[in-house]
Each structure stands twice: as C-alpha cells, then as structure tokens.
Design a protein around this nucleic acid. Sequence first.
DNA 1: AACCGCGCTGTGAACGCTAACAATCGTCCC
DNA 2: GGGACGATTGTTAGCGTTCACAGCGCGGTT
Lengths: 344, 344
Amino acid sequence: MDQPSPPRPAVMIDVARLAGVSHQTVSRVLNGHPSVRDETRERVLTAVRQLNYRPNALARGLAGRRSRVLGVVSFDTILYGPAATLLGVERAARAAGYGVSIVTLEQLDHDGVSDALSALAEQSVAGVVIIAPFTNTAAALRSLPMGIPAVVVEAGASGGLPAISVDQVAGAELAVRHLLELGHETVWHVRGPQNWLEARDREGAWRSTLEAAGRSVPPVIDGDWSARSGYQAGLRLAGDPRVTAVFCANDQQALGLLRAFHERGVRVPDSVSVVGFDDIPEAEFMSPPLTTIRQDFDEVGRRCLAMLLDLLDSPVETPVYPRVTPVLVSRASTGIRQSANANS
Amino acid sequence: MDQPSPPRPAVMIDVARLAGVSHQTVSRVLNGHPSVRDETRERVLTAVRQLNYRPNALARGLAGRRSRVLGVVSFDTILYGPAATLLGVERAARAAGYGVSIVTLEQLDHDGVSDALSALAEQSVAGVVIIAPFTNTAAALRSLPMGIPAVVVEAGASGGLPAISVDQVAGAELAVRHLLELGHETVWHVRGPQNWLEARDREGAWRSTLEAAGRSVPPVIDGDWSARSGYQAGLRLAGDPRVTAVFCANDQQALGLLRAFHERGVRVPDSVSVVGFDDIPEAEFMSPPLTTIRQDFDEVGRRCLAMLLDLLDSPVETPVYPRVTPVLVSRASTGIRQSANANS
DNA sequence: AACCGCGCTGTGAACGCTAACAATCGTCCC
DNA sequence: GGGACGATTGTTAGCGTTCACAGCGCGGTT
C-alpha cells in the first residue's frame, strides 16, 4: 500500500543510501573514477538502475567547472548549408556526450553575435560553435566579455580564431575550371550576399581563376542565396549571347537561373552551361540536373567538434585543422560548348 | 598597477558588496520583486552594469525550480518543414526569454524519442517541444520517466497530448479540390513516408476528398519526402494516359516528379497538373512554378510556444489551440484539363 | 506607551553535485 | 613489528542562486 515511486526524481543521495555507500562514491562511479572496488561499483550501478537515476546536469555544471553543454550560434537555419552544418555539429556533440544549446541570429551583425554569445555564456556552456559566416564575426568574438572557447565554421579569414572551413576557393576553382575545360571562353558569376564570407571567397576565386587562365572577367551579378535572386539574374543574362557559362554561388540561385532560362527559351546546357554550389539534395532533380560543388557538411560538423574539444582540453594553443575539400559533381546542366561558336 | 578586472566573472555577492546591500536584495531586483526601494534598486542596477554582471543560469535553475531553457526534439532538420518549425520555435522562445536546447533524432522510433527526452530532462529543461511527427511519439512521451510539460508539433492524432498542428486534412482537400475544379477526372497521389503523421493525414484526406466527390481512387504511389522518390514515382506515372493530375505529399517529391515528366516528355500542366505541399522557397522557381499548399511554420512555432508557456503556468489543464490553416498557392504547374479528353 | 502591521532588508538554509582533504584498512618493506 | 604507502571510502566545504523566515524601523491603533 505504500507508494514506492515518489513523484520527485531520485537524486544522488538516494542512490547512495540504497547502495549503502556515501554520495561521493556514487559520484566517483558515475564519473569513472578508477579507485572504486568492482563490487562497490556494481552495487552502485544496480541502485542507479533501480531508481532510474539520472544525474542533474545543472548541479553538475555548478559544482564542477565545466558543463556538458555546447552552444551553437547559427543564422538562417532554413538554408541548406547552415542547417546541414548545424545537424553535423549536433550529431557530433551528442556522440561526444554533450548537449547543444542553440541561438539563431535574426541579423548578421556585430551586436547579434555578441548578444548570442552572452546569452550562451549565461547558460555556462563549455564552448561555442559559430555557424555565422558573417564577415565580422571575429571582431564580435573578440569583444566577448569572457573567454569561452569558440570555433568558427566556414569563415575564410577568421582573424586568428580557430576555424573549420570548406575550401571555398578550391570549390570555385573546380567550378570555373570545369566550365573552361568544356570549351567556354569565359564564365559569368552570380554571387552571394556580400556579408557572407563564403560568397566573397567564391567570387574571389572565380575572378582569379579566370584571370589565371587569361580570360576576360565579365561583370559579376548580385544575388542573395535565394532562388528569386537567381531568377532575376537569369532574366538579365538570358538575352546576352556572350553568356555561355554561368557559375552560381549556390544551388538555389542556380535553380532560379534555370527557371529564368527555361522561361526565355535559353536551353541548358545546349546554349548555356550552369554550375551551382552545395549539392543540395534537390540538385540532382532539377531540370536539367545541376552540376555543382558538393560540400561535406557532416565532416565540417565533426571536425568542428573535434577542434572544440581539443580547445577545451588545452585552451592555450590553437589547433589547426585542414580545410574540408569540396568535390565537383558533374550532371546534365553543363556540356561541351556548342557549335554556336562556329558563327563567330 | 592593480588589476581591476579579475578573470573570474562577477557573481551576485560581488554586486551586493559593491551596492552595499545583501545578495538577496540583488536577487530581488533582478527578479523584479516589488518590495525594493527605488533608490536601492538603482544602486543595485548600477553595480550590475559596472561589473557587467550576468546571473548564472545554472545556479538559478538549481536553486529555483524552473530553468529558463526549453528543450526541442526534432528530426531531420534539413527538411524544410522541421527546419522552419524549429526556427519558429526558437525565435518565439528567445522572445519569451528562454534558451533552447535541441536534440536531433537519428531515427524516428520510440527509443529515440525516449532517449532524447531523458537527455533533455537531465538538463532540467522547463518544457519540451517535440517536432517529431512520428506516429508513435505519444506512447514514447507517456513512458517518460518524469512529467515535463510537453507540446507536440504537427501530430494529427496526438493521443491526448497538447499539440499544435497544421490542418493537413484541409490542406490536402484544398489540393485535390483545386485539381478537380480544373476539370480533372481524378487525382493521383504520391504519398510521404508512412511513419509520418502528416503523410498519413494527407493521404487520408486525398482519398476521402476523392470519395466524397464520387471519383475513383487511383492506387497510391509510395514516396519518402525525397526528390528521388518523387522522380521514381514520376517515371512510373509518365507512361500512363489516365494520369492527368498528381498531388505530391511535399514539394521535393513534386520537384522529382516534374523532373521525370520533363525527361519523358510529359508536359506540365498541359498533359498533367501537379500540386505539391509546403511551399518551400524554391517552389516558385521550379519548372514550371509549382502550385502548392503553404503552411505557416512560423505561426506554428509561435503557437507552440504560447501553448507550452500556458502549460508551464497551469500544468493541470491542457490548453486547446486551433489548428493552423494552410492555403493554396496557385502557380503554373496546374491548369485546366486539356482537350485530350475530347478523344475519349 | 505598548502594540500591530507594513515596507523594506538581511540571514540561513537549501538545490544536487564535485573537489579537496581526511580517515580507514590492509599490505609491504626493512 | 612498526611505519609508510596505496587502495578505497567518507566528510566537509563550496559552486551561485532562490526560498523561507526572520528583523528593523516607522506610522497608526488601542
């Protein structure tokens, strides 16, 4: 008739009593401290199971110094890149026994990053991953009140901060070279928003690859990652006979571009070849299937976390990790430069 | 020569000393307790600013009952729906002064949900939002060790759990009716994965809408949300002259379907009309632009959070919120049933 | 003049855990 | 055989905050 399960969840002292040991011994068992007799350890673990005990992370964090929670600052997690990176980081964190607290920025600016970081600091996160490839993240980070270990994702020039990045330059080169090798005289570019580092890197590499090949550099077209901006770029480009190859800074823009071309009767790849960036799951099923540059976001997440954990161990030295190398995925949207050339 | 800023961040007692009051008074000021003299309040706030003091959320959570952190359990945050909902919830939570801790499920099963919930419980979250429209989430939730207030998102039959959902039935009806009104004899359906509640609801509503209209119900085609599955469905459907209208359970599937149709020379909307579901940002720029059912995920997130906060206030009664109503967005992928009919 | 109540403030004890140190026991070594 | 030592366990003190319960001073009552 007694009530065996109190509504209040068991705490460490309950386990200790049930196992006939002190709470400290329970703590030792839970934290894998070596000097506990096997027989005692078993007794404790049995009690833990019996009471369905789960240690309280809050108390843990308060008592020890480190919490088992990491913070992630991200921006626009509906975009494929950030979403995929977030997922990668979250998975890796969970595998390493960390919880993940997120803050999504409304705007990519200094104050936003700063606020986000102090919100996370308040929660005593052990470290922070910043998936906000804002051109000015570094400054925001430096102005951080307290020194939380932080890793920045996908920031090209991170200003000395530990960073994991996909080699955007290599990716853009891959795209441009691919198009040049197909016989195109030059390559047009629809770039991403200027406050994103990736966008700048891709544009820069596009430009320098063309220059290195001794080709003329057409005027760059603005874009903001959205399919709409790609569509608008497509409308502008569709009338121009000089345009035979376009490198879009991401796949959504390429989708919009393809749409505009389709509407205007520009045939892809017959008249114009198109390359995107990211290899979103939909790329393979666009009309036509999109040649693009694949980034391994999962790998980014994993390395990112590995780096952060290194940083937690030895906060003095900044670990250096190699960039993640993107690969070209060739599909139907790119083709040999057609005989139209013969007219010239 | 002295060092004015100790590396250790200021704590409440530091503020108290600086302001010449007790730590409890500082606490009162911070929590907006009324019985503090204005002059004292000012003095404390000045000290807070001066020391750049931020209360420690861990200690707060430990001492008081409630933490200011909410948990979110989600699944496959790369998909548009979950990603958008997550973003909506996160925004609303932040606006309400809550932090957000996320757990992304690897698999949609009972244990996954259960583990995720206890991981969050460990972090003493105040409440949980579950964006895992798994058909069996309800059971997993009930087997939860302790009673954390929880709100389920997008679950049709949530088994008595507080839930916010988009009215999938209304949405699917909108899609099917739209196609019937355009003169199509019947509507084919490419459904989503069977363990998703949304997929089941959409399929059910598709079926019953057809039946209510006295139309024949074609065999359903399987899909898994991916563009690839839509593509495969498209290949199967492309040869069939009876197919004049297809309702896809989401926009990605519709994209794949459009691709397959394009490949096989099936013209959209001339030969076949296609409707999707979600209105992802890319839908407008598909070839042709996709008619689809728009869901307001931001609204879902907001209501969800409002509901959870209600639940935190009075855990006894389950608040009831109306469903979010989706709307039809008509684009070029649907058109009047063409003269092909005249042949029959 | 003693008393009550109210506005404001301070004191002590949790909250559940880890860290540092002390205690106990048996063993090993000379 | 005594003391040092290692293995194992217990004890005590925080971590930084909130909660419950006093205190104190002052004006108004009786």
